[in-house]
Amino acid sequence: MQDLVSVVTLGSVYLLFALGMSITWGTIDILNFAHGSVFMFSAFSASLVLERLTLGLVPVLLIGVVVGALMSVLIQVVAFEQIIKRARDRRTAEMQILIGGIGVAIIPLAIAQHHTQSNPFGLNASSFTVESISLGGLRITNIQVLTVLLALALWAAAAVWLRRSRQGLALRAIGVDAQTAALMGVDRRRLALVTMAVAGGMAGLSGVLFTFSLGAITPESGDTLLVKAFACIILGGVGSMLGVAFGAYLLAAAEVVILTQTNGSWVEAVSFGLIFLVLLVRPAGVFGRKEVRRT
């Protein structure tokens, strides 16, 4: 049963992180390889602020969200918009965005590595303390409970946002067909910025929560998470909200099983192996609606 708690909490971190990536990829066609960098740097910024100020949980979370959103918007304006403007067609734009994301991601990583000498950093200076709660024999920390609740709430909110609101409709129209969306009078640029801000905010939030719950993270931890998020999205199917949640918890479950059954060093291979398997067997993902473009 304790393992179930691990699955749910780990899955929620993956979900919170992958949610932003899934939304930008599924709607505005941006697979943001700087997402892991945003995740890490938001938590890092919070730790910098905490070196000078003692803050409670909510302000620290807010710092993470704001830094994440700002970074994401900045990357969109400075990098991705420029690439899209110059690219010859959609295929080259996709590749340039991936490569550009990898390039941009080096910068925050370099700053954080320089400052921390590549050592793990944490948020222990916060006035908020992580405490264990016992629920019917199960141990769970307050931050884990918060992570699970926030992940599910934001996931539901994003799903409703995408399904109901005018903006959501416009976004899904872009995801379906850019030309139709333009004809419908959708302002692509503004929508893309809003989407990137939301995605970045989620990355920042998950960064702070994850750092709280682990105690400390290394500047490089964003990269690993990036590949895992990709696994979640691929598992469920690009653009599917149900899919990304399914993917996140399935990946967490698979990892926890491997962790408890073996000595643990194969855990990292799970997500990579799953990506491979799903792409071969069911390229559109379990809940995918769009056919994977080939060639």
Partner: peptide, 14 residues
């Protein structure tokens, strides 16, 4: 046979 980003990520996984 996979296209674009899917192929890229499959090879990253590899």
């Amino acid at each position: 046979r996979l296209g674009g980003l899917y192929l890229a990520m499959a090879t990253v996984a590899f």
